[in-house]
Every structure is written in C-alpha cells, then in structure tokens.
C-alpha cells in the first residue's frame, strides 16, 4: 500500500487556529504510520475570521497527490466559497470534492481512512458517516 497515492484532505474554517488545530488533531489520531497530506485553510489572507478562496486553492494544490482531494468545511462562507470554486471549474485540482461531514469528527475519519490508502469515495463516506455517531 505504501506506493499508493493518498487522498489529500483540506480543512476550511473561518478561523486559522481552528483549521490548523483540527488538522493537527486528525493527524495525531490517525497514528504514526502513513503521512496523509492534510492542509488547513483557515481565516482570510489578512488573518481575520472568514474564508479565503486563495488559501483554499493553495491548500488543495498542496495536498493533491493525484488520488483526489476531500474538502471539509465548517459553516457559512466556508461552504459557499468551496462550492463556488468547484463551480468555477479550474480553481481546484481535478477530482476535488466538498465532503458533507461534521468538521472535527469528519476530519478525523477522513484522515484515518485516507491513511489506509482508501480512494476518494471511501474517504468521503467515512467522513459523512461521522454524522451518525450520536453523543447523547
């Protein structure tokens, strides 16, 4: 499996710290085996809360290994910006998908699954399944 191309993961949050911390957490929980390409895209280019299409595009390009890119977002403009970029056609790597998943749990599920060498569809469904885990 080690020579397989891994799915890249992009984490888009209104907050740079949230995106970076969730990326760190997901990588830590995925164990030490395979280094999944994970990139945070948080806040705006001027360091404020919000979403930057430039940061999202750069993050997606940086994790693209040819096996597709799964993008997870928090809310509002993060969701809409990624959707608008996908509609644009040439702003994100080919085979990039917005994954409908809870941000933290979905990120952990996506990174753990991507580390097994799973394809994009499998990573996507693992992240989406995180919605079904009830806490109370």
């Amino acid at each position: 499996m080690s020579d397989e191309k891994l799915v890249g993961i992009v984490l888009v949050s209104h907050s740079a710290q949230v995106a970076a911390s969730v990326a760190e957490l997901a990588k830590a929980l995925s164990g030490g085996g395979v280094a999944v390409p994970v990139a945070p895209a948080g806040g705006t280019t001027s360091g404020e809360f919000g979403t930057s299409s430039e940061l999202v595009s750069a993050a997606a390009a940086s994790v693209d290994r040819g096996a597709g890119v799964a993008v997870l977002t928090d809310l509002g403009s993060a969701v809409l910006t990624v959707k608008a970029l996908l509609a644009e056609g040439d702003e994100l790597p080919e085979n990039t998908r917005l994954v409908d998943a809870p941000f933290v749990e979905g990120a952990v599920a996506a990174v753990v699954t991507a580390a097994t060498g799973a394809d994009l569809a499998t990573v996507e469904s693992a992240a989406a399944e995180a919605y079904s885990y009830r806490k109370a």
């Binding site: 705006t44 979403t51 930057s52 430039e54 403009s77 809409l80 959707k83 608008a84 644009e88």
Partner: peptide
C-alpha cells in the same frame, strides 16, 4: 471572480456567482 476571492464572507461567493 474578484468578489469570490476578496470578500471573505458569504456574500463573496453569492455575489460572485
């Protein structure tokens, strides 16, 4: 395109689109 890349809030992708 410019609105999508510079606004930073939800109105960027909405007006941009």
């Amino acid at each position: 395109r410019q609105l999508i890349s510079t606004v930073g809030g939800a109105s960027g992708p909405l007006y941009g689109t």
